[in-house]
């Protein structure tokens, strides 16, 4: 999730229908710049190079979430659009192993559509397989000279990446092949 404030001005976003290396490109309606959804950065148009501030969100289940936050609101299916909300239109996509094109060769044990925790520090990208973090609960490593601690709590599905001083590092959840598409030089934790 991102803030929609760009230089203190609110922007509205739409779906461009375009892809760049398996990355969905969104656009802001005011400047019509295209933005990488995973990077949160404008990649074409007037705002090229501008980044959106990442805000925390978590992927969890409704049961866990409503127990933690009984006062929570939930998005209504009354969206103004007629869609079959009983079905996720991407079920086939989730299950299928390959996108349209393959942009790189998978390493041993890697899957295109496995979720990774992606972080960027000083322009360097690194990915941590979510399943590995789930199993271990914690990963500690020094990346780019910075001591990092990744923590995953399966009771609440909360995921945090923190530096030694306790400050948070923003992260994204993405499919491995999507993350690698936008960050070809990314490292990957093993």
């Amino acid at each position: 999730m991102y803030s929609r404030l760009i230089k203190n001005k609110e922007r509205f976003f739409g779906v461009s229908g375009l892809l760049y290396r398996s990355n969905v490109l969104m656009y802001d309606r005011a400047s019509e710049s295209l933005w990488s959804q995973i990077k949160g950065e404008a990649v074409t148009g007037k705002l090229t190079g501008t980044r959106l501030e990442v805000l925390p969100s978590r992927l969890t289940t409704w049961g866990k979430w409503r127990k933690l936050h009984p006062e929570s609101l939930i998005l209504s299916t009354d969206t103004g659009y007629t869609r079959d909300y009983t079905k996720d239109p991407y079920l086939d996509y989730y299950a299928r192993q390959s996108g349209f094109w393959s942009f790189f060769k998978l390493g041993p044990g890697e899957k295109e559509k496995e979720l990774v925790v992606g972080i960027e520090l000083d322009g360097q990208a690194r990915a941590y397989p979510l399943e590995l973090l789930r199993q271990q609960g914690e990963i500690r490593e020094t990346f780019g000279g910075i001591e990092l601690r990744l923590r995953f709590d399966s009771a609440t599905d909360s995921l945090q990446v923190i530096r030694a001083d306790g400050s948070k590092v923003s992260h994204m959840l993405a499919y491995w092949f999507v993350w690698k598409g936008i960050h070809p030089q990314t490292g990957r934790y093993k």
């Binding site: 739409g14 779906v15 409704w62 049961g63 979430w65 409503r66 936050h69 299916t77 909300y85």
Partner: peptide, 30 residues
């Protein structure tokens, strides 16, 4: 309309908690 085991994106910000069922998000992406 949502079962407990269904996937949601959960957000808590400025004291407001919201959940977005991913099967609804998939139809709109943003």
């Amino acid at each position: 309309f949502v079962r407990d085991e269904e996937q949601v994106l959960g957000v808590i910000l400025n004291g407001v908690a919201k959940a977005y069922p991913t099967r609804i998000l998939s139809w709109h992406e943003l």
